[in-house]
Amino acid sequence: MEEQQKFGFTQFAEVWNGRLAMLGFTIGIIVELVTGQGILSQIGLM
């Protein structure tokens, strides 16, 4: 049985990239709702 490649543009990498992107977006929205400031305000750009 051939071992699945875990780096590069593979199905495995793209699935995890999507999952982590959704997690980051959700955390960003929650932080914005809790603090009342957007990400640009939090890092001092606005």
Rank of each mutant, 00 (worst) to 15 (best):
Gly36Arg: 00
Ala13Trp: 00
Lys6His: 14
Phe12Thr: 08
Phe25Ser: 15
Met22Phe: 09
Glu32Met: 11
Leu33Glu: 12
Phe12Gln: 03
Gly24Ile: 06
Asn17Arg: 09
Ile30Trp: 10
Gly18Thr: 05
Thr26Leu: 15
Gly44Pro: 03
Leu33Gly: 07
Asn17Gly: 08
Met1Tyr: 09
Phe9Val: 03
Gly44Leu: 04
Glu2Met: 09
Glu32Tyr: 02
Gln42Arg: 13
Thr26Ile: 10
Gln37Lys: 06
Gln5Asn: 08
Ala21Trp: 05
Gly8His: 00
Arg19Gln: 12
Phe25Ile: 05
Arg19Thr: 13
Thr10His: 01
Gln42Thr: 02
Leu20Tyr: 10
Glu3Leu: 12
Gly24Trp: 03
Gln4Tyr: 05
Leu45Ala: 14
Val15Phe: 04
Ala13Lys: 01
Phe12Ser: 11
Thr10Ala: 03
Glu2Thr: 11
Gln5Val: 08
Gly36Ile: 01
Gly28Gln: 06
Glu2Tyr: 05
Val15Cys: 03
Val34Ala: 04
Leu23Cys: 13
Gly28Ala: 10
Lys6Gly: 07
Ile29Pro: 11
Val15Ile: 08
Leu23His: 12
Gln5His: 04
Gln5Gly: 01
Ser41Pro: 00
Glu32Val: 12
Glu14Ser: 01
Gln5Tyr: 05
Phe25Asp: 14
Gln4His: 04
Glu14Phe: 00
Gly38Ile: 00
Ile29His: 11
Phe7Arg: 06
Lys6Gln: 14
Ile39Gly: 15
Phe9Tyr: 12
Thr26Gly: 09
Gly36Ala: 00
Ile29Thr: 15
Gln11Tyr: 02
Glu3Lys: 14
Val15Glu: 09
Ile30Asp: 03
Gln37Trp: 13
Phe9Asn: 02
Trp16Ile: 10
Gly38Glu: 03
Met1Pro: 02
Arg19Asp: 06
Thr35Pro: 08
Glu2Cys: 11
Leu33Tyr: 06
Glu3Val: 13
Glu2Gly: 09
Trp16Asn: 14
Gly28Leu: 08
Glu14Trp: 01
Leu33Met: 13
Asn17Ile: 07
Ile29Ala: 15
Glu14Lys: 03
Val15Gly: 01
Trp16Thr: 14
Val31Phe: 02
Ile27Cys: 01
Leu33Trp: 08
Phe7Thr: 08
Val31Asp: 05
Gln42Ala: 09
Arg19Val: 11
Val34Phe: 08
Glu2His: 10
Leu45Gly: 03
Thr10Gly: 01
Gly36Cys: 04
